[in-house]
Design a protein around this nucleic acid. Structure first.
Lengths: 204, 204, 204, 204
DNA sequence: GATGAATGAGTCTTCATTCAT
DNA sequence: CATGAATGAAGACTCATTCAT
């Protein structure tokens, strides 16, 4: 097997195991046993267990960065309905998270208990998502779509928490695969809950 | 030192360490070193490391059960403004979590990565809080305060996620102690965000 | 067993094994097997294999520093015959090295092949002994006992090499214990070889 | 590249690495990386790591045997000044060792810590050189040049130790290349130190 | 009850060697 | 011949737990 494929394959098995059993309860033995390869092979492709884990997370980020703004460039910020904008953002995020339940589980659930660098590598994701929300809220205020008296720090926390928990709940707890239609429906509900309190209702 | 005090003291040190470093990165050595007691002493009071951890969590639950309905019995569900009811619930929850940043950190952040029973012992808290919210929403619908077309499963997730993240953000990330006035303010903001979409607006 | 005794005992077994098989061919398993203790016990007393080794060497140095000038303070440098002074120095050194064939073997024979800090910790001994010789030669020149045209760097190397090799040869190669009388004899021979070329022959 | 050249090239890289880092700290990886060849190629030319090392040492011996008596056949043992004879021997030995600092380092410094056969393969060199000295001393006694009361075992050790340490000191510690003139000078000093004690001074 | 020395199963990691391409 | 992916035995080190004092 070529180096590239083998590396990908090891990452795949590791991801599943880390997701199901966590970092510390996943042994290199488990990975090589599942992948039916020799113990040393893992170390040909990854410096150590940490490296394996961090590579997984890094890949996740890269993927996310590529996906989060998918289709957004077509949007004209001046003319789009701010509620639609919110809707797009939420849907893109959920769609992305729905793609990989294992990574979703790892990134959203693994909390403290990872030593040193590992934890912060995980935490970064939440920060990134929250920063995006903050930026969007500020943009909305400048464009007169979002209520000026909104507590941005607070609201960004509420939305981030609500969003991530929804993803975790629907994409990892529930076993059956989630289809785009369902994500559309979930997104509509989330938008319905947050929109009234956030946006300036122009045409009532 | 009396047996009871000694046990409490060990739990206290363990809590701080588990909170800061996680379960797997906290060694019995760390605990006995911090507590300035002998290695074996821990085992006089706890069957093993797991027991120590589970006892911590169990105490947390008992405390929570005692606190969550604090002052609620005085309320007449027939006459209270549903928004006030929501407000009370949120405040009680936040107040409770604000009391112990370490346990807050453990319960809200420790995710997968705990073997077997440990994880589920942690997960139970989120389920309990969500069930409470679901019960409250149903009650509201029966009493004609909450919109009938609300997706309860969905909404309970949004509120749970928003609430827990807020608690984590303000009570563990921020170093300075949170005072009741601040909690009051935070609670008002949360209520302000969720109320418009959840409750039937009778008097507009 | 008390901590102090146990530590000493482990060092003793480690010394013998390091001496006979070298650093890399001595496994922690070998040590615990010989000492009839558990694997972990070694790590209760030493941070790691390196630490065990370095402790051994450090003890050797401390011992040497204490021994090298043994009985020298009684000597009046102005009146003593310089050849006798040389004789005393050589005898003290040999006597010290004869006491512990294993450490002698480790310090004199273990060369390159020890990673990083380990090697330099060994090398220090040779430097120390050579520096002592250099200091003595300079002293001799100042006191008009040693020939002024002597190449000190060169000569110190010759004496160091000759001395250490003799120690290695007689104290570790030969199995039978060396007694003081033999050391006396060896010392006389060494003195006999070097004295004519080094000292100014006053009374011929 | 031809098989012969390739083998020589691998030996060259191995020698440098063994000399700098020792046997156990030199990995096959290091060698193939330095030589920019594939991992398996080494095993096309050498049975294993041991074989690589032993070949290195064997080459050294062959070279030494060829060199040690260089120019000695022209000498008439009956007429040559014994001090000159000693001088020639020392110079030849030093000249040979000065040629290859890396091998000098390996052979003179690598002590215990090599498993089984490897160590004895190294030790042989010291024995050979000492045996040569012993033979020369005996020859000197027979020819009435060397003092009859000399302790041969002892003296051979002193000379061997002095000689090897000098080689190590000047040819591996010192970075700058040693030229023939310097070797000549060093040889003269060594001869100056040992000659007075060893030879019968006929013409004073 | 308290102590802390001792235990040893369990893990990660290394690295010489093999072998199909 | 050359390659480099794969192997797996071997070794260092950790740490929860026990138990004699």
């Amino acid at each position: 097997m070529k180096a590239d494929e083998r590396k990908k394959m090891i990452l795949e098995y590791a991801k599943r195991l880390f997701s199901r059993k966590g970092y510390y309860n996943t042994q290199i033995s488990d990975i090589v046993h599942e992948a039916k390869i020799a113990r040393g092979t893992v170390y040909q492709y990854f410096k150590n267990k940490d490296d394996l884990f961090v590579t997984l997370i890094r890949n996740f980020y890269n993927e996310w960065e590529r996906n989060i703004s998918l289709g957004m460039h077509k949007i004209d910020l001046k003319t789009i309905d701010p509620v639609d904008y919110f809707f797009f953002r939420v849907r893109n995020t959920l769609q992305f998270l729905a793609n990989d339940a294992d990574l979703c589980n790892i990134v959203l659930r693994m909390g403290i208990g990872l030593s040193g660098g590992l934890e912060s590598s995980i935490r970064r994701f939440e920060k990134k998502i929250q920063n995006l929300i903050i930026a969007d809220l500020r943009l909305g205020i400048r464009n007169n779509h979002v209520r000026k008296d909104l507590n941005i720090e607070m609201t960004s926390n509420l939305i981030t928490g609500a969003l991530l928990r929804t993803a975790l709940y629907f994409f990892t707890h529930k076993k059956n695969r989630i289809n785009p239609a369902e994500i559309e429906k979930i997104t509509r509900e989330i938008t319905g809950i947050f929109a009234p309190a956030i946006f300036i209702q122009k045409n009532i």
